[in-house]
Design a protein around this nucleic acid. Structure first.
Length: 269
RNA sequence: UUCAGACCCUU
């Protein structure tokens, strides 16, 4: 099965989910049994294709072929059902797992925040035995999605108070909260934190987030500095800066940058 | 050989 798994995985990572599933059924019909490594790959493909019937069939197969409940498989089932919009099914899988790990708890929190059920998310957050940076960031992103940047910042602070070190995604959440609140002071602190802790500022989304924060907090000069120092830019980087210049009354500079963007080979979207 | 925060950050 491991040879098939590698092949199936190669297809899913290129977005060819349907081909992956065809390959999987080919494997079954040729007498090769799936192993616990097969299911997460193929369940994710079902989730992406919203293939509900097949997903349920494969759920049945996990019960048939797995002697013990594999945490990777359980989590993939929870994710798949939540993508189908079947929150109760996701919850049922979670409730029936004998030993839950931090990934499953975090997945459930994410499911609830996406549904706007922040009370349920908070309840899970408090109940769970251990939390890591993914868990904390899921709560931060959840509050941002649901229009509570103040609460997002509160969670970020609590995370640090608990001794969990923020990574790029966590800091980006805090930066995004600052942008919405106009909190230049904390935003600058976050920028310093990124530099001081060697977080990867070359991650385009992190630099984009910093630029956006500076623009919205009224510091165009800082935004331009981040932009100029970016080794790699995306079309979003240019959009952010063009809009930033325009919002700050620099119409001419905005148009110039818009033209430079096209010279750099970026097509306006 | 397999899972979670990032269909995110700009408009």
């Amino acid at each position: 099965a491991s040879v098939y798994n590698a092949l199936i995985k190669a297809h899913t990572s290129h977005g060819a989910h349907l081909l992956a599933l065809i390959l999987y059924t080919h494997m079954l019909s040729h007498g090769t049994q799936p192993d616990p490594f097969s299911f997460p790959i193929v369940l994710k493909a079902c989730a992406n294709l919203e293939a509900r019937e097949l997903g349920q069939q494969i759920h049945a197969q996990t019960l048939k072929f797995c002697v013990i409940v594999d945490p990777f498989v359980s989590n993939s089932l929870i994710l798949m059902y939540s993508k189908f919009g079947l929150r109760d099914c996701a919850r049922k899988v979670f409730d029936e797992v004998p030993t839950r790990n931090v990934v499953m708890w975090t997945t459930m929190i994410d499911v609830y925040t996406r549904a706007g059920l922040m009370d349920e998310a908070a309840e899970f957050f408090e109940k769970m035995p251990e939390r890591n940076v993914f868990t904390w960031t899921a709560m931060i992103s959840g509050h941002l999605r649901n229009g509570s940047p103040m609460l997002a910042l509160g969670i970020f602070r609590a995370m640090q108070a608990c001794g969990v070190h923020p990574d790029e995604v966590a800091v980006l959440g805090a930066i995004s909260a600052c942008a919405r609140l106009g909190g230049l002071g904390i935003g600058k602190w976050a920028h310093v934190y990124v530099k001081a802790h060697g977080l990867d500022i070359n991650k385009v989304s992190l630099a984009n987030g910093l630029m956006d924060m500076y623009v919205k907090c009224g510091s165009l000069a800082d935004a331009l500095e981040v932009f100029n120092e970016m080794p790699k830019r995306s079309v979003v980087s240019y959009n952010t800066m063009v809009c930033g210049l325009a919002m700050h009354g620099k119409g001419k500079e905005a148009i110039e940058l818009f033209e430079n963007m096209q010279k750099d080979g970026f097509k306006p979207n």
